[in-house]
Amino acid sequence: MNLWEYIADRRDLLLFETAQHASMVAQCVLVAAVIGVAVGVVTYRRPRGAALATGTAGVLFTVPSLAMLGLLIPVLGLGVAPSVTAIVLYALLPIIRNTVVGLQGVDPMLVDAARGIGMSRLRALTRIELPLAWPVILTGIRVSTQLAMGIGAVAAYVSGPGLGEQIFSGLARLGGANAVNSTLTGTLGVALLALAFDACFVLLGRLTRPGGRRA
């Protein structure tokens, strides 16, 4: 059976796993984005707070993903819970860091102008600072998404959902029938999904660029 026949044969299963993978990544990144931006917003004005936040996220980042998943098993068991937790944790670092960098990069003069014409702290943040930092934050989210794609595949190790299942079952049966096909399908699927997500980010970036398109 060649690769194409393998895929044709399991079309429904593969589509399901792809959809599962995409949905898992999207939801995890969404959660990570909400937490990450919030942490960034809270800490960016306090150098020590910002260092602590990025430092902690950085330490988590250095833990190998297999080890992280393994460590989460005793706490959260198998399946969706440890997978989602691991992905969110990994996705946090780029988002927090870029949020902090993006917000710190907004010209203080503009914040001064915003406050000076009578905007409250919150309004200056939501109307001026966040929109201006948005391209940098979006880049962080984009990097996180790519990360989440890969780690999502590894999540099959703890019986997580998604295309990782194809990769791991193939690797487990290496030498057996369709082992290579299965691994290859999973890998290609993740890669294609990653490209598709990235394309979405490019589009989103264009649509939400502050100051609109070139006037």
Binding site: M109, D112, G116, G118, G211
Partner: peptide
């Protein structure tokens, strides 16, 4: 302070216009 500032015009060097608006 916020209400006070809405009743006081404020002009700074290099205008300080919001570039995304």
């Amino acid at each position: 302070p916020d209400r006070l500032r809405r009743n006081i015009g404020y002009v700074i060097q290099q205008a300080g216009l919001f570039p995304h608006l």
